[in-house]
Amino acid sequence: MSEKKRPVYPFSAIVGQESMKEALILNTINPLIGGVLIRGEKGTAKSTAVRALADLLPEREVVAGCPCGCEWGRRDDFCPDCIEREASGELHSVTVPMRVVELPLSSTEDRVAGTLDIEHAISTGRKKFEPGVLAKANGNILYVDEVNLLDDHIVDLLLDAAAMGVNYIEREGISYAHPSRFILVGTMNPEEGDLRPQLLDRFGLAVDVEAEHDEDRRMEIVMRRMEFEKDPEGFREDHEAEQEAIRDRITEARAIVRDIVPGRDVVHAAVRIPLHLGVDGHRADLTLIKAACAYAASEGRVEVTPRDVVHVSKVVMPHRMRRNPFQDSTLNTEELDAWLQSTFGKD
């Protein structure tokens, strides 16, 4: 609730860091992209951008009063409580904004997965499920700051839930399952250690952010920040028009992205790029297509082309490049560009 009190720095006022902003927006257009991992040193607006995103998030229609935020109309994705309530005909829908749900590093297993509601057990002597962070995150953004420092046993829980979009709980006499589809957003400073390979692969996109080197722009960053701190509300009002423009763009893109059908050429490109780069598995292929469609939609197009695939490959591929722990997980962009040029032509 404290996040409500403190005004959030507007997304549109963030200077530079275009690929990070784009990656975040693509995910709000199509949540199935699977989130984004933001890698970079301290003080590069990583957390600011993620928190600022909350302002731009679209609204969603959910079952009123459901702790898991079950999406209205998707009966297959209902939690057991909603199914029960539906049978007795007491289900209503409500429109709520999509949220950024934070997963603190100090979280304990039972709070993340959910567990037995002890209060209920003590006062009634009956077992009841108490939802955890993975329930709150359903349909929302799950944000982990310093994700590489997250304890292993918590990462395991994320892996499990992210795999099927369902959180199965088997704890303390409670056996329960609820939907847990979230956009996983993580930030990390690679200096402080690696991310577990399996978790790395769960992130749809990855961007590397660097501090701004241009002097003028650095000045601009500081000026804006100071202006914001002096008068947050005023600053936010000044940027409201720009914010609104981004919001409109997202809403419009979300409306058309459903209708975009990737053609043969797009699928072909999405398969060839990972093959060329020697990336195992099929996640890269699928993510390339979803991200390309979202990118096309963000530009207001209903046609997706191989060029869109090429464009998003810069954020889809980097973290998938590493095939053993001793390889750099960065993309050789020059080599890739040359290959893309020769294969898919000029753009």
Partner: peptide
């Protein structure tokens, strides 16, 4: 499914609180 969050008593068996209390 046996999820990674499962507690041992839940996997292999133990006492059921609700029934026992009742």
């Amino acid at each position: 499914s046996l999820p990674l969050n499962a507690t041992e008593d839940q996997i292999f068996g133990g006492m059921d609180i609700e029934d026992t209390i009742r």
